[in-house]
Structures are given as C-alpha cells and as structure tokens.
C-alpha cells in the first residue's frame, strides 16, 4: 500500500541530492549520450520510481477488484486507499521529474 510513497521519497532524495551535489561541486558539464548528467540521473530515478509505483498500483487495483462487495469493510477500505495512494504517487513522481527538463539544472 505504501510502495508508491516510498518510491516517491526515494526519487525525491535522489534527485535533490544529485542536483545539489553535482551543482555544488561544479560537476555539471559531463554528459551521458548527449543528455546532461543531472537530467540523466533525474530521468533514471523518475523512470525507476514510476515503474515501481505502476507495479504497486496494478497490484493494489487487483486487490481492490478481488475485495468485492462481500469483503470485510476494513479490507475494502485498505485496498481502496492503497489504489488511491499509489495513483497519486504516480502523478506526483511525474510532476517532480518535469522541472529538470524545462529549467536549467543549476539556476
């Protein structure tokens, strides 16, 4: 149920950490395959987090589907909340990745 949030937290830490370290140390010039290294790291972290969250979302949706009308109220609540949280995490991770591709890395 919390997989999405954890993935978001990890993505958050990685992109903030990487951006400030690289910018602070002046290691920004390096590129990988024509993409700035900051952008590359953010892209990788974002895609990884998205993948994990998408899996978690699929799983919680399945749980939600299984927990039909006959399931205990607590189970239904948990599966619903799980799907919601994972859905939101997916969106937020995406939003978090966008700025790197619009703004300069170290402004």
């Amino acid at each position: 149920m919390l997989a999405g949030l954890v993935a978001w937290a990890v993505q958050f830490t990685v992109i903030y950490g990487a951006t400030s370290t690289l910018c602070g140390r002046g290691w920004v010039g390096a590129t990988m395959l024509g993409v700035g290294n900051v952008q590359a790291i953010i892209l990788a972290a974002t895609l990884a987090a998205l993948a994990v969250t998408a899996l978690a979302l699929a799983w919680s949706l399945r749980l939600y589907g299984q927990a039909g009308d006959r399931a205990a109220p607590a189970d239904r609540f948990m599966s619903q909340t799980g799907a919601l949280i994972n859905g939101f995490s997916l969106l937020v991770i995406l939003w978090h990745g966008i700025p790197a591709f619009i703004l300069p890395a170290c402004a």
Partner: peptide
C-alpha cells in the same frame, strides 16, 4: 484538478525559464 495542475506546472516553469 489533475489536468489543470498538470498544465499549469509546465507553464509556470516555462515562464520561470
């Protein structure tokens, strides 16, 4: 709200850039 915010975020960032 998701659609509106998803449109405003890049717009605001572009103005910033």
């Amino acid at each position: 709200p998701i659609v509106i915010l998803s449109a405003l975020l890049p717009y605001g960032l572009i103005v910033m850039r």
